[in-house]
Simulated scan of single mutants.
Amino acid sequence: MSTIPICLLAIAMLVHHRAPDLQNAMNHQIAQSICYAAKAYALNPRILAAYTLNENGNYNVGLLKPAAVGYDAGIFQVNTAIHSNMPMIKYALYPAAEAALASQIIKQDFAEFGYNWRGVAAYWSPEDAKDGGRQAIQYFDRWHSHFLLVSAYFNKARHIINLRG
């Protein structure tokens, strides 16, 4: 059985729960974006979904907010100044492009820091993750609780699909 249907159902349920007023088409677009980016960049979709909850837990797709430098945009809150060298940054408010962009950043962070708390926290601040700063640890702790929440949705989706199947 493909993991994509489980992923789509799980993320769609999560997005609907966190943003019940979000248009159904946008809910599905966010779920697809996360699942397909995870597959394209060989990342666990739970990892990506946990980042979206850490960064923009209400799935406000159009959210553009000022940061220390530049702006943080969309469901992954990709920073437009720090990551201006990324080819898709001008599309950061589009879920599919932003999920691909965030996946590239996350892959780079894991390559540099490892698949550990520092690798996760580097998305928020590579400098703070490198130094083991308190805020980096707090970022990881929030991310980890979100990862567990996302995992519960994946378990529900797997159960629903098994009942149908």
Rank of each mutant, 00 (worst) to 15 (best):
M1A: 14
M1D: 09
S2L: 09
I6C: 07
C7L: 08
L9N: 11
L9H: 09
L9I: 07
L9A: 07
A10R: 10
A10M: 04
I11R: 05
I11M: 02
I11Y: 02
I11T: 11
A12Y: 07
V15R: 03
H16E: 09
H17T: 14
H17Q: 13
H17N: 10
R18C: 08
A19T: 04
A19W: 00
D21Y: 04
L22R: 13
L22W: 01
N24H: 10
A25L: 08
M26T: 14
M26C: 00
Q29D: 09
I30S: 01
I30H: 03
A31P: 01
A31E: 00
Q32V: 05
S33H: 02
I34R: 05
A37G: 09
Y41C: 06
A42C: 03
L43S: 05
L43I: 11
L43V: 05
N44G: 00
N44T: 04
P45K: 07
R46T: 14
R46H: 07
R46A: 13
I47R: 07
I47Y: 09
L48F: 05
A49Y: 08
A50S: 13
T52P: 05
N54W: 00
N56K: 08
N56E: 11
N56Q: 13
N58E: 04
G62M: 10
G62D: 10
L63Q: 14
L63R: 14
K65A: 15
P66A: 15
A67N: 14
Y71N: 15
Y71F: 12
D72L: 02
D72M: 01
G74C: 04
G74D: 00
I75L: 02
I75G: 00
I75Y: 03
Q77V: 04
Q77L: 06
Q77C: 04
N79S: 06
A81G: 12
S84G: 08
N85Q: 13
N85S: 12
M86T: 08
P87C: 03
P87S: 13
P87E: 10
M88G: 11
I89V: 15
Y94V: 15
A96R: 12
A96E: 09
A96K: 13
A97M: 12
E98I: 05
E98C: 11
A99P: 09
A100W: 06
L101I: 11
S103C: 06
I106N: 06
I106T: 12
Q108M: 12
D109A: 14
D109I: 01
D109H: 09
D109T: 06
A111L: 09
E112V: 12
F113Y: 15
N116H: 06
N116F: 00
G119L: 06
A121I: 05
A122Y: 03
A122S: 13
W124N: 15
W124A: 14
P126T: 04
P126H: 03
E127N: 11
E127S: 14
D128P: 00
A129S: 06
K130Y: 07
K130M: 07
D131R: 15
G132W: 03
G133R: 09
G133C: 04
R134N: 11
Q135F: 09
A136N: 12
Q138D: 14
Y139M: 07
Y139E: 10
Y139K: 05
D141V: 08
R142W: 01
W143T: 10
H144P: 00
S145T: 14
F147A: 15
L148G: 00
V150P: 03
S151L: 04
S151D: 15
F154A: 01
N155L: 07
K156C: 02
H159M: 06
I161M: 09
I161W: 03
R164G: 11
